[in-house]
Computed example of a mutant assay.
Amino acid sequence: MEPPKDLEQLHEDVKQRLAVAGHRYTDGRRALVSALATAQRPLTLRDIVSRVPDVPQSSAYRNLEALREGGVVVRISAGGDRSHFELAESLLGHHHHLICVTCGTIEDMRIDGALEAEVDRALTGAAGEAGFTPLRHSLDLYGECSDCGEVA
């Protein structure tokens, strides 16, 4: 996934979202957002702390929670205790995930616009048959990454 084109605009958007949620946009939160924006994939807390060493792990976790509450960050579970964090889809754009069940790595994946539209139509149709009104979708594909698949 490509980093956002205009990092300064991203920071301004995040600042506004946090203000609405009653949170300040501190230097530490700004550093976490920059790390997530430039990562090109969801990151674990350990990954984030290694990219932003000036922010202690406990502070990083608390700040990620404030960013999550503000609609800026989402948590993705890879199973067990493997949580990853990324910027919200409204900031990054619509995408899906490839999740390795062996090592827990998560990669972002975009699909072709025509295929995305077909998936959306199929999901909307299935939901409608069940009397469900969909708002959005996300797809996570579980399997093995190329590193783990080579071991087998």
Rank of each mutant, 00 (worst) to 15 (best):
P56W: 08
T124H: 08
T133N: 06
G104M: 08
E2H: 13
L43W: 01
T26V: 07
D140I: 10
S146W: 13
G22T: 09
L64P: 04
T102G: 04
A66R: 11
A19Q: 07
R30E: 14
G79S: 08
A114H: 06
A117I: 11
A37T: 05
G143R: 11
P134N: 04
D140H: 07
E116V: 09
S83K: 07
V151G: 05
L98T: 03
A31G: 01
A88K: 06
L87C: 02
R51I: 09
R75G: 02
F132V: 10
E69Y: 06
E12K: 10
P4H: 10
R51H: 12
G93Q: 00
K15W: 09
G143I: 10
R82F: 13
Y25K: 02
S138K: 08
V14L: 04
D120P: 01
G22D: 01
G71C: 12
A60T: 12
L45H: 00
L45F: 03
R30S: 09
R41L: 15
L87R: 08
Y61I: 07
E86K: 03
V119M: 03
E118K: 14
G149N: 13
S146C: 02
N63D: 14
E144P: 00
P3C: 09
N63K: 13
R110K: 15
E65C: 02
A21E: 04
K5Y: 04
C100T: 11
A21Y: 06
V119A: 07
V49I: 09
C148S: 02
T124V: 08
T124C: 04
A88T: 09
A122V: 15
D112H: 12
H94S: 12
